[in-house]
């Protein structure tokens, strides 16, 4: 096998994490951008699990938004980040279980469209129940305590950045174990030949449902972190463009390994920030060109580029 080994990936992940901490030290304003990027990376990791089964969800922003609103509604009652985060993520996973029971019957375009439709239903609910959700104006989230401590602005930002980074490392590690396990291998089998999987006595639906709930959980973590970081939650978090963004990041980062989503998310957010800084009125053009460039010249995403470099390094 010419794929980089687990040790190499772990080293890369740790080096990447150290680099992020260094950047956050050097440029404090980027801490916020990086926290959002890491959170999106978590959600895209969930997309990657489904991609392994050959399924693309165009509606995962639903779980991001759901968790964000759980945080927004519960924050006045339990102002503790370490309680809100798991609550919101579990809530998203539960919703993922209910919806997953339906959508895991479908494959490919039908799977993608079902997810899209349900996410837009939720978006409309957020917008229409105006007196409850404050509509498009959104809900302000007061900064919760972290581990019982009321932190200053800088301390709070560091705490959330740390939580996000820690979660990413743990989630990436667990996702790697899961994908290597029989349950994870079953996902690749769904992609290649689902009937054979059934012949082996493994329920393809159960395998996909498990991955779906896991991806909803990850998106839930992302939503909770985003809500506690931006501290203002609007229905736009659940709009279809937000779902599209997650798929965009998955393509950008590459679906080959668990590091891909995080590479993609960080590259995406940094490109967007710098594009907006240089060309305030046509930053979309730069973002689009970057994606086109990746599709044309690095079809396996940023991770594919790194993988190729590593392989060349080993051969040399």
């Amino acid at each position: 096998m010419s794929r980089p080994g687990g040790k190499q990936e772990a080293l890369l992940a740790l080096a990447g994490a150290a680099a992020l901490v260094a950047i956050a030290f050097g440029a404090p304003w980027l801490k916020f951008v990086l926290t959002i990027a890491l959170a999106k990376g978590l959600a895209v990791l969930g997309i990657l699990l489904l991609l392994r089964a050959g399924q693309v969800s165009f509606g995962h922003a639903l779980y991001v938004a759901f968790a964000a609103y759980v945080v927004a509604f519960l924050a006045p009652l339990v102002p503790e980040a370490l309680v809100l985060l798991p609550l919101a993520a579990l809530g998203a996973a539960l919703l993922g279980l209910v919806i997953g029971l339906f959508v895991s019957r479908y494959r490919e375009i039908f799977f993608g469209m079902m997810n899209l439709a349900l996410s837009m239903v939720f978006y409309s609910l957020l917008e229409k129940f105006y007196h409850f959700t404050r509509g498009t104006d959104g809900i302000r989230v007061q900064p919760p305590r972290v581990a019982g401590m009321a932190l200053t602005r800088d301390g709070y930002e560091w705490a959330l950045f740390g939580i996000a980074l820690g979660l990413c490392l743990v989630a990436g590690w667990l996702a790697r174990i899961y994908l290597a396990s029989p349950m994870g291998q079953a996902l690749s089998a769904i992609k290649t030949r689902e009937t054979r999987l059934e012949f082996m006595g493994i329920s393809a639906r159960a395998a996909l449902l498990f991955a779906y709930v896991a991806s909803a959980f990850l998106a839930g973590c992302a939503g909770a972190i985003i809500a506690m970081t931006t501290r203002h939650v609007t229905p736009l978090l659940g709009y279809w463009t937000a779902s599209g963004e997650l798929v965009f990041i998955a393509v950008l980062g590459g679906a080959g390994a668990v590091l891909g989503p995080f590479l993609g998310a960080i590259a995406f957010e940094l490109v967007r920030v710098y594009a907006a800084a240089t060309l305030a009125d046509s930053w979309q053009l730069i973002l689009g060109s970057v994606l086109l460039g990746v599709i044309l010249f690095a079809s396996r995403g940023l991770w594919g580029v790194i993988e190729a470099l590593l392989r060349r390094g080993r051969r040399a």
Binding site: W29, F32, I226, T230, H232, E269
Partner: peptide
Amino acid sequence: DEGPGLDHLVGEFRRLVQN
């Protein structure tokens, strides 16, 4: 640009103030 949504705008606000 306010167009891309709040998480982007709040990030840009910080960039302008802090950077």
